[in-house]
Design a protein around this nucleic acid. Structure first.
Lengths: 212, 212
DNA sequence: TGACAATATGACCACGTGGTCATATAATAT
DNA sequence: ATATTATATGACCACGTGGTCATATTGTCA
């Protein structure tokens, strides 16, 4: 955790440091990200940095936890609406919300993408500890629920489907990023919706010709 | 391209350098990978390195191209068998072959994984130039082919399905890596086959209960 | 005003980086 | 044996890294 001195800072200054750190850590992995750059960008001397943080890892973990907490907050505000929907609606909902999150907090989304690429085991471990694997658990819960309701076939492998959905989720983000530069769903709301529908239609109806 | 001097080297020495480079570039991204480490590991002086290569990028591109060429060679040796199979069989085939490639050339597979994580735009661009996007084209070709044969529904979005298959392919690899440490398909041949079947069954039959 | 603690600061450290270059050595041709 | 060319080598360079620390500045009590 950052030192007390950091939290005693004026809000403006503290936020400036935070946003400088977010920018740095979302553009380079842990090893390549530079404390010097963060200091320059937030206009604080090197010495001050080490008054505020124990070391590089301290800042990294702090920033990553912020992003994770924001994402959890965003989704838990939304997840209560899911209960009485079909699995298909739930999944569409999560996909679209995922894109909305990336639009609302592009830096946090970028941090997440960067974290997926992280090579440094120590940095990864420090961030994860526990808390991850949650999205997998969420998907599996939704799937089993849908099975009980008879909404999807009991023969469907929950883990396989969950993996499929997760990888799809990041694929959608990457697709948007590739096509529009940023994940700004606004540009092409219809386009995105159509794309998500195509994916969901494949998953729910299968690919096989109905005239088989 | 490496300098002539490099290709005049004795095979042993040249291969030692190559394998040292592969190891380094598969464990760290372009920026973090270290020439010094490569020199140490292959027991050549720094000065010699720069007799053999123009610079770091020169070596990086050379190594990555080797991996790509090996993968293309591996798949093109296999792809002729695909023609008279159904799409489902084709896809299973590619998935399994992908795992086999990762088993046969784990270092090359690791290089590929690392390349997916690459942040350095210049390094990425130098490797790609052209030549990528091939796997996407292959999938789309297979899909459209299957449509013509009436094998899959015409309404299925080829790009969406192609994207789904690609992301799934890397997801399967990652899943195996996660579960077994390395991608040694041998350990759990049945397990893997069952898992791939589950995924394909979802894609082809859809998820929806047949009693709807 | 003086004393004490909290904070701010940048020169400095040891080290690792990609890359250079003068020199030594080996190989080849005359 | 001599001259010429190709190769081998490691000290060296400028720079960037994460991190330290003595000192200067400020804030807060009495």
């Amino acid at each position: 955790m950052p030192k007390e001195t950091f939290f005693n800072l004026q809000n403006d200054k503290r936020n400036l440091i935070i946003s400088a750190a977010i920018e740095e850590f979302s553009k380079a992995n842990y090893n390549s990200a530079s404390i010097n750059q963060i200091c320059k960008r937030s206009d604080i001397p090197k010495g001050s940095f080490y008054q505020y943080f124990e070391d590089k890892l301290d800042l990294y973990v702090y920033i990553m936890k912020m992003a994770i907490e924001e994402k959890i907050r965003f989704f838990s505000a939304v997840i209560t609406e899911l209960h009485d929907q079909t699995l298909s609606e739930q999944i569409r909902f999560l996909f679209i919300k995922g894109l909305e999150f990336a639009k609302k907090y592009p830096q946090y989304a970028a941090l997440g993408e960067q974290f997926l690429k992280e090579n440094d085991e120590a940095a990864k471990a420090a961030v994860i500890q526990e808390g991850d694997r949650q999205s997998e658990a969420l998907f599996i819960h939704m799937i089993n629920n849908a099975k009980e309701k008879g909404e999807i076939d009991n023969k469907v492998d929950a883990l396989a489907l969950s993996l499929l959905l997760q990888s799809l989720n990041s694929a959608v983000n990457r697709y948007m990023l590739d096509k529009f530069g940023d994940i700004s769903y606004e540009h092409a709301k219809e386009d995105v919706n159509r794309f998500v529908d195509s994916l969901l239609s494949i998953i729910f109806n299968g690919v096989r010709s109905k005239f088989d």
